[in-house]
Design a protein around this nucleic acid. Sequence first.
DNA 1: GCAGGCACCTGATCGC
DNA 2: TGCGATCAGGTGCCTG
Length: 300
Amino acid sequence: MPELPEVESVRAGVHEWTAGATITGAEVIDPRILGTTSRRHVDASAVDGFITAVTGRRIIAAERRGKFMWLTLGEGPSLAPELSLLVHLGMSGQLRVHRAEDEAHRHTRAALRLERGDESLDLRFVDQRIFGHLGVQPLVHAYGRLVPASATHIAADPLEASFDPESVVNQMALKRTAIKAALLDQTLVSGIGNIYADEALFRAGIHPLAIPARTRRSRLTAGLDSASSVMADALAVGGTSFDALYVNVNGESGYFDRALLVYGRSGQECVRCGGRIEKLTIGGRGTHFCPNCQRPPRYR
DNA sequence: GCAGGCACCTGATCGC
DNA sequence: TGCGATCAGGTGCCTG
């Protein structure tokens, strides 16, 4: 399940393989990939518009904010960024670089034909569950940099230079929802998904149902620091993988799943105290925690 | 404005 | 063996 470390691994690979390449053609195999998460059905004109918009443009760079990734596209000699090709991997999306003659994976939803020097490559978007999406959008300013128009509400992530943890803690301290839900709120801090939210709260010893507005600022800071460090650790080993659903551009899995301390371990012994890992649902998401190491808030 | 819940989607798994 | 129900989860949208 791609979260920030996984998306960053993919972005780095895509940048290495595609920066400077020209898009000579595109194919949309499943038009639903161009829709939004709630409106999957798009018409033929959207497919034609997508192909027309990207064909002939040059890829300047692969960029990322949180779990949103995009290719900045330019045209002509100036190569000033004009457009973005937004890519969200959703739950099961993969961006993979192939030789043009390679057989397509059965869940390939779209492909770009690229030329870079003498090389011809395919950049393929593979997505089993179609929770991911693609789209061509103008670039606009948000949180100190140019981002695709539909990502302006996404806050800076902990790996960005513009990330301001004090400001995030200030905003978080106003929230009256569970801290687990606050960490997943991409308008507060981006990039944290269900897996790393559970791991971060365990490392910081914070119960997932704690209310930020009733939690000491030092504890909120510790939780945020923990989220940043757990994602940095995961990035160092290429992210997390439980199965074949997440791989990088070369089709390789990450190894951080071997370091997960609570996620997916309900009913098993806590590595810290030997107690039993429990699971509950917060905001519709499975939440794993140790009731001994993460004491319930007294005000519950 | 804020918080919670649901839809989108497919494949694996489970129970009957 | 085959079928239906359930579960997993990121995001956008709707409702209270």
